[in-house]
Amino acid sequence: MKLSTTNKTMFIPFIVAGDPYPDVTVELALALQQAGASILELGVPYSDPLADGPIIQRAAQRALKHEMTLKKAIELVSLMRKKGLKIPIILFTYYNPVLQLGEEYFFALARKNNVDGVLIPDLPFEESGHIRQLSEQSGLSFISLVAPTSRNRIKKIASEAQGFLYCVSSLGVTGIRDTLPNELYEFLAEVKAHSRVPVAVGFGISRSEQIQTLKDHCDGVVIGSALVQKIEQLADCLKQEETRKDALIEFQQYAQSLVEPLQCNEMR
C-alpha cells in the first residue's frame, strides 16, 4: 500500500459500507477524499461487532437492512474507483465473515476490486499468521492493531506491521470520548520507537482539540464514530436526490472542520 509522501499527518476516516444507503457510501467516500483523507477505512457491517460502540453498531444495522455483505462491500470499492476515489482503501471486517466467504476467495476478490489493505480487529496477532501470509501474497497490507494492554507485545507486533500500525487510544469499544487517557502519549512514543511503518491512533477521537494535541505524537489519526454520527444525522437528506448534494457538502465541511489542525502539520 502506497501512502502519501506529503509531510502532513494522515487523516484516516472510517465509514460503514452501505450506510445509510449503498450508493451514498460511494459519494461519502469521495467527499472524504475532497476533505483531505489520506486513507479510507471502509467498515463491513456485522451483526456481532465486538470492537464497535453504539454509533457504529447502528450504522451496521442500517447497512444490513440494505443487504450489505462482505462481498458487496468489496465490490463497492470498485465502484468507488470508477467514480474517482484514488486514496488507499482499508477494509475493516471481522474474521467470521472472512471465514464464511473463504479466506483465499476473500483476498482474491479484494485484489480484483482494488482494495489496498485489510484490518481484522478480532483476530489476535498470534493467530494471524496464515491470514497475513495470504494478504502479502495478494499484494494487500495487513493492518495490525496494538493496544495499551499490548505492552509486552509491542516490539513483536511492530516488527511485522504493514502499511501503518493502528494504535488503540484506550480500552473498550469505539465511540466519542470527551477526553483521552493521559498515558496515551507515553504509549504512542513507545510504539513509534519500535515501528518501521507510520503509526496511527484511533478509538474515541472526535474533536479537533484532541487532534491538535495528538498530531505531534503520531503519523495519522483515525476518526470513525464522529463521522458516522454525522452520517446518521444527515441520513434523511442523503436519501433524497433533491437534498443529497447539500447534505454531502455539509458532511465534507464537517470532516474538514475536525481535521483542520492537520492541514499545516509537518510529520516528525
Results as ranks from 00 to 15, higher is better:
3 L>G: 13
5 T>S: 14
8 K>P: 10
8 K>M: 12
11 F>D: 01
11 F>E: 00
15 I>V: 15
16 V>G: 00
18 G>N: 08
19 D>N: 12
21 Y>H: 14
23 D>R: 11
27 E>D: 15
28 L>G: 02
28 L>K: 01
29 A>S: 15
33 Q>Y: 06
33 Q>K: 09
34 Q>M: 14
36 G>L: 04
39 I>R: 02
43 G>W: 04
47 S>G: 12
51 A>Y: 04
52 D>K: 06
55 I>W: 00
58 R>W: 03
59 A>W: 00
60 A>Q: 01
63 A>Q: 00
64 L>N: 01
64 L>T: 01
74 I>F: 01
74 I>V: 15
74 I>K: 01
78 S>N: 15
79 L>K: 08
83 K>S: 14
83 K>A: 14
84 G>H: 06
86 K>E: 15
89 I>S: 02
92 F>A: 02
93 T>E: 00
93 T>V: 11
95 Y>C: 02
96 N>S: 13
97 P>L: 03
100 Q>C: 11
100 Q>D: 07
104 E>F: 05
106 F>S: 07
109 L>V: 12
110 A>H: 06
111 R>P: 02
113 N>G: 09
114 N>A: 13
115 V>S: 02
118 V>A: 07
119 L>E: 00
121 P>T: 12
126 E>P: 14
127 E>R: 07
128 S>I: 12
129 G>E: 14
129 G>M: 05
129 G>K: 09
132 R>E: 13
140 L>Q: 00
142 F>S: 04
142 F>E: 01
144 S>T: 11
147 A>Y: 03
150 S>A: 09
151 R>G: 07
152 N>E: 15
154 I>L: 08
155 K>W: 10
157 I>N: 03
157 I>H: 06
159 S>M: 09
161 A>P: 07
162 Q>N: 11
163 G>N: 04
164 F>P: 01
165 L>T: 03
165 L>Y: 06
166 Y>G: 03
167 C>R: 02
168 V>Y: 00
169 S>I: 08
170 S>N: 12
175 G>C: 08
177 R>Y: 05
178 D>G: 14
178 D>L: 09
179 T>P: 05
179 T>E: 13
180 L>M: 06
181 P>C: 05
183 E>W: 06
183 E>T: 14
185 Y>E: 00
187 F>R: 00
187 F>T: 04
191 V>A: 02
193 A>M: 12
193 A>R: 13
194 H>W: 13
195 S>C: 13
195 S>I: 02
195 S>P: 05
199 V>K: 06
202 G>A: 05
203 F>H: 04
207 R>E: 11
210 Q>T: 10
213 T>Y: 08
215 K>G: 03
217 H>L: 09
218 C>Q: 05
221 V>C: 04
223 I>Y: 00
224 G>C: 03
229 Q>M: 12
231 I>E: 00
231 I>A: 03
232 E>W: 05
232 E>S: 10
237 C>E: 15
237 C>W: 06
239 K>L: 13
241 E>P: 10
246 D>A: 14
250 E>L: 13
251 F>L: 07
252 Q>H: 10
253 Q>T: 15
254 Y>Q: 07
255 A>K: 04
255 A>I: 07
256 Q>K: 15
257 S>N: 15
257 S>C: 12
257 S>L: 08
265 N>T: 15
266 E>G: 12
268 R>G: 15
